[in-house]
Amino acid sequence: MAGEIVKTSVPITFMYKNRVGRSLETYINGLKGKKIVGAKCPRCKKVYVPPRTVCGKCHKLLDNIIELDQQGVLKSFTVAYVNIINGEIKDTQEPYVIGLIKLKGASSLLSAVIKASSPGAVKTGMKVRAVWKDTTRGDYNDLAYFEPV
């Protein structure tokens, strides 16, 4: 038996066109107009952001789309020193903050990038507000980041 380990490299490249779905289309359309929308459950009144198609708790279809306040409270965060790109862990140029935000009127937490004077200035419990790109194109990046109020 030879000691060398022989391997083939077999890249499997697929191209998928995944439909984002009805609810997220509403959300993306909202972002284009610099609005954050959520879906309200007719039964438990929970407000999901971004909107979901179904309330997991009540099994109700959610078609009541409401506009949400663009301010909220930071509930938890992590400072990212790396990005995971194509399955590889790569250093970021600058560390950045990923936070979970409870928007006023929302029941679920929204994940977003938080920008403050420095990552050290980010604290759990602080008030944050949405910052938009100057020109919106109808994609997730239109909502650029959240910053301390």
Binding site: R19, V20, G21
Partner: peptide, 12 residues
């Protein structure tokens, strides 16, 4: 083709 729905919406 069901371009009008995503995977979970197809199942529901």
């Amino acid at each position: 083709k069901r371009p009008d729905v995503n995977i979970p919406e197809l199942i529901q």
